[in-house]
Simulated scan of single mutants.
Amino acid sequence: MKDNFSKQADAYARFRPTYPDEAFDFILSTVKAKDAAWDCGTGNGQLAAKLSGHFTSVFATDISEKQLGNAVKRDNIQYIVASAEENSFTENQFDLVTIAQAIHWFNFDNFYAKVRSVLKNDGIIAVIGYALLEIDEATDKVVQKLYTDILGPYWDKEREYINKRYTTIPFPFDEIKSDQQFAQIMKWSADDLMNYMNTWSAVQHYIEKNNSNPVELIAEELHRTWGNDPKKNIRFPTLLRIGKSLKQRPGA
């Protein structure tokens, strides 16, 4: 598992989008019991905080101690520095395992073996994330210029899983699908958007190699395209895969 976000942990906590309540409610509707949940790759604890209002105990892990230092604090959340594949959780411990915008960094085989072990018989795994943002045609072109033309070579290969909207990740579970397409809407200024883009791992890779910030290359064009609107709706399409462990199949 890679750690691409410790350097910008504070900005990550402030500017990363949240997840739509409708998607979260759908995840909860698939879970029979709500005793314990594990939020893996929790980052700044966004999803762990939501889970804490519904589960007796929430265990949230991440390999970045700096990320956890910026995480949302709740009495029933226990934050642990640990990898997705190697930790001290025990068999049949969790009703739900969630992974928010992180599954593409994991060793799939090792992680899924761990998930099958720690999930209870009726346990659920929920993979959630968000695709590249959408605003309007003109502004989207500027975002694409940064995302593809400037940063294309600087994205880790795992980013392709998000470009494919998690449809190509291995998912060896009995899948539960929703008929609804979810999305999170944020109301941001142009500066908010640039602050968010500064949290991209590819931006950090670019800075490390070139000693300059690529977001500045599109800043003037972005503000010109933005126009006079103080804030605009920023749409993040939700990525969602939900399933039950294969061990729950009859005879498995």
Rank of each mutant, 00 (worst) to 15 (best):
F55Q: 06
N110P: 01
Y79C: 00
D122K: 14
V142M: 09
E65M: 06
A84N: 08
F59A: 00
V127T: 03
I218V: 13
Q8Y: 04
I27F: 00
N228M: 14
V81W: 05
Y196C: 11
A60N: 03
Y112M: 04
I77W: 05
I63L: 12
T139W: 00
T199K: 07
E221F: 03
S117Y: 08
A60H: 03
A37D: 07
K114W: 08
S64E: 10
V72D: 13
I103V: 13
I99L: 13
N107R: 10
T56C: 06
V118F: 09
N121K: 15
D191L: 08
W226G: 01
A13Y: 09
A126R: 03
N70R: 12
S29N: 13
K73S: 14
T168Y: 00
S6V: 13
D122S: 15
L246W: 15
G53P: 05
K244H: 13
Q67D: 02
M1S: 13
A126D: 04
K34H: 12
T18N: 12
Y206V: 15
V215C: 06
E216Q: 09
V143I: 15
N92T: 09
F59S: 01
L51A: 07
Y19S: 05
A36M: 08
C40A: 13
D179E: 12
W200L: 15
L217K: 14
E220Y: 11
K164A: 14
N198W: 02
Y161A: 06
F26R: 05
K209Y: 04
E160Y: 04
K7N: 15
L222F: 11
F182H: 05
R16F: 06
K232F: 07
D25A: 08
K244F: 04
F55P: 14
K50S: 09
A13V: 08
R116E: 15
L47K: 01
K164E: 05
L246R: 13
Q181C: 03
Q46G: 05
E208H: 12
L193A: 02
D95G: 01
D25H: 03
M194W: 08
I27V: 15
I150N: 09
G45P: 03
H223P: 00
N87S: 11
N198K: 05
V97Y: 00
V215N: 01
K120F: 07
I218H: 10
S52M: 07
M1E: 08
Y130D: 09
A48D: 04
D136T: 10
F236H: 02
G129P: 01
G243H: 12
I103D: 00
E65F: 06
L246S: 15
I169L: 11
R241K: 14
L68K: 02
T168N: 04
Y154R: 02
L51R: 05
T98G: 00
P170Y: 07
W38Q: 00
K157W: 06
K2M: 12
A13D: 09
I218P: 07
D35R: 11
R16K: 09
H205W: 04
D229W: 01
Y112F: 15
D95A: 01
L96M: 01
A36G: 05
V81S: 02
A102I: 11
E160Q: 09
A219F: 08
P172E: 10
T56W: 04
N210F: 13
I99W: 05
